[in-house]
Design a binder for these strands. Structure first.
Lengths: 167, 167
DNA sequence: AAGAGTGCGTTTGAAAAATGAACCCGTCAA
DNA sequence: TTGACGGGTTCATTTTTCAAACGCACTCTT
């Protein structure tokens, strides 16, 4: 699959991944949420190759996750800031942080988070209806209005994503 | 930066990304949460090159996100299942799904989710202390016990991630 | 006026990774 | 004994990534 086509898959994960499913991109976004805005600041913090950083920032701007704004004329200087669409990625980043904190931080958390309610906290994902914590086993899925027009058939029926040829 | 070293960065996002920050890996995990378990099933659903799939599954097993279990002897057949550590990635996947639903699904959601409470729902990330929805602007960070021993100094001080040489 | 520094990139070749096709292996059923 | 199935590996080619160098427009210092 080419990554161009990934964004057109009838799956929200695939579409999201087509925009942010890249290691450098996720690290760039982490830094955005920490307040980093300038090309050089990203470069110094991440030790990312410049061409890659330029490419990722360009793509994030194109997909409207970041916007590039002039913060100084003469000499022209730009900064990259999260849009509303970009800010909406906060749960993704926090979910990653929390998973890393729980499973990959044997020496303790690298960073502590404090909420405006005054306490240190963990991010918890809950059901918008009953407000209890979401567990994978308690969720079922069904096709929605944006699903594929021509749904895949079970493997028995010929034509299910062309079985690989045998000699 | 080599990806080997990324897992050792004093940042939970970096560590999480070193395990799952890859496009195919995220799509494999999506399918895991949809109940896919077998090599061929992943291959058919994702149209992923076999060597890449084998590599990603191997890495996920090594990092204990999946476990490979024999579900049939003679002929030997295996399946890949989420471990507890893997199940804990559910908020990451749901956060991606929801972002994709909101920002990348002009024709409606490809998939609807129903919670065991009986309702269709959205996943919402809340503060574990006050239970209100988390907003990036309402969170501050501070160094934690697992932070770097030798913290980076502000750029003014020499040695801040070696400034690139000039001609 | 010369030279150095800054911010933000692009170009260039070499190294690493992804890709598609083919191949392999143990088992079973016809 | 031929073929199918599940689950991979090998191989050659294309695509990405990388580090280093280069470019440019401006400003600051001497």
């Amino acid at each position: 699959m080419q990554w161009k086509k990934l964004g057109k898959e009838p799956c929200s994960v695939a579409r999201a991944v087509s925009v942010i499913g890249d290691r450098w991109t996720l690290l760039v976004l982490r830094d955005c949420f920490l307040g980093v805005r300038r090309f050089e600041a990203f470069e110094n913090r991440l030790r990312i190759p410049r061409p890659v950083l330029a490419d990722r920032l360009r793509k994030l701007v194109r997909s409207e996750v970041l916007k590039k704004t002039l913060y100084e004329k003469r000499p022209a200087r730009y900064e990259y800031r999260l849009t509303e669409k970009g800010l909406d990625l906060y749960p993704v980043i926090m979910a990653l942080v929390h998973w890393g904190d729980v499973h990959m931080a044997p020496g303790g958390r690298p960073l502590l988070h404090r909420h405006s309610c005054g306490h240190r906290f963990d991010p918890v994902m809950v059901c918008s209806q009953c407000e209890t914590e979401l567990k994978a086993r308690e969720v079922t899925v069904a096709p929605g209005p944006g699903g594929r027009q021509n749904p895949r058939k079970p493997p028995k029926i010929a034509g299910f994503s062309s079985p690989r040829p045998r000699s």
